[in-house]
């Protein structure tokens, strides 16, 4: 069921991207030969058209493409003149690393904020709520520039651009993590307040368990579920954010490659990158679903998995 759904999702993503990219004005044969500025000859254009089947009807091109996709061939990038699978392989690690670090940092910040807001009384809760809401609406490109200004040029603590050592990931990851942390913290805080009023928490309190024990064993566990369940969504959002952050911090990665691929009308590369992003989203949402269920026994008996991911 899940696998069938996943294949359906990937097929639809590939189809949608195929037609969307072909809708963009611009000749794919020209894209293949380096864009309109490169003054390709008429013969070269004709040859590329014939070789790549650009002269065939669109539906036939689509079927051909789908056929190749089924055989696991993502095709060759027009602009980089390298197999799409190779380009994706090269760029995937950077984006995954960025996304994972961002998730970790976002969770740490969110937990910290949520705990502080529930432990620190109404004033702390107010302040935390304000911080969360503001953090959640900060545009990445602005935030990234401010962080560079502050920590790279101002204080000189961290490099402004991606560097081979581990320090280079901190600012880009923070840029992605802060707005995400705002969202997660809001969710977490509400869930904590909600969980605290649950019958089992009240029962545990009545049994004489300590505040800390109740909190750790019941409240937090109960509250973390939905937020973890949302990690799949968060990961998807990080892929979009990576487009901006990778450009600002000059990090190699899927996002930056994708923007330039769209700009040069590199159809196979755009589809390949979209498929990878969609697949990553599917994998992470399955994982986060499983984690959520492991944390929350009530969900284990749920058979109908909502929207499915």
């Amino acid at each position: 069921m899940r696998i069938g759904g996943a294949i359906l999702v990937l097929w639809a993503a590939a189809t949608a991207t195929f037609f969307a990219v072909r809708l963009i004005p611009g000749d794919p044969a020209q894209a293949f030969l380096g864009g309109p500025g490169s003054q390709a000859s008429a013969e070269a254009l004709a040859r590329v058209r014939a070789e790549n089947g650009f002269d065939l009807p669109l539906w036939q091109q689509y079927l051909d493409y789908l056929g190749r996709l089924l055989r696991g061939e993502l095709g060759t990038s027009y602009s980089l003149h390298a197999p799409v699978s190779e380009v994706v392989g090269e760029q995937l690690a950077g984006t995954l690393e960025l996304a994972l670090w961002s998730l970790v940092i976002a969770w740490v910040i969110a937990l910290g904020l949520a705990l502080w807001s529930v432990a620190g009384g109404p004033v702390a809760a107010r302040i935390a709520a304000g911080i969360e809401m503001t953090a959640a609406v900060l545009p990445h490109f602005w935030l990234g520039s401010v962080l560079i200004l502050l920590f790279a040029t101002g204080l000189g603590w961290l490099p402004a651009i991606a560097t081979p050592d581990a320090r280079g990931i901190i600012l880009p990851a923070l840029t992605l993590a802060i707005p995400l942390a705002g969202f997660l913290a809001q969710l977490l805080r509400e869930a904590l307040q909600d969980a605290a009023a649950q019958p089992f928490v009240l029962t545990a309190r009545a049994r004489g368990e300590s505040h800390a024990s109740v909190f750790a064993r019941h409240t937090l566990r109960h509250a973390a579920g939905p937020a973890i369940g949302l990690t799949g969504w968060a990961f998807g959002s990080l892929m979009s954010g990576a487009v901006v952050v990778e450009t600002i911090f000059a990090r190699p990665g899927l996002g930056r490659t994708l923007v330039s691929a769209v700009q040069v009308r590199d159809v196979p590369l755009v589809i390949g990158l979209t498929l990878v992003a969609a697949a990553a989203y599917l994998v992470v949402s399955v994982l986060s679903d499983l984690a959520e269920r492991a944390l929350n026994p009530a969900l284990r008996i749920r058979t109908e998995a909502g929207a499915g991911a």
Binding site: S145, I148, L149, A152, T153, G156, P159, A160, I161, T163, T247, I248, F249, A250
Partner: peptide, 19 residues
């Protein structure tokens, strides 16, 4: 030889000594 498309990042990297 690095490719840093963003002009604000480029000058920041020069000022911070990264490039």
């Amino acid at each position: 030889w690095r490719f840093i498309p963003d002009s604000a990042t480029r000058i920041a990297a020069l000022r911070s000594g990264d490039v």
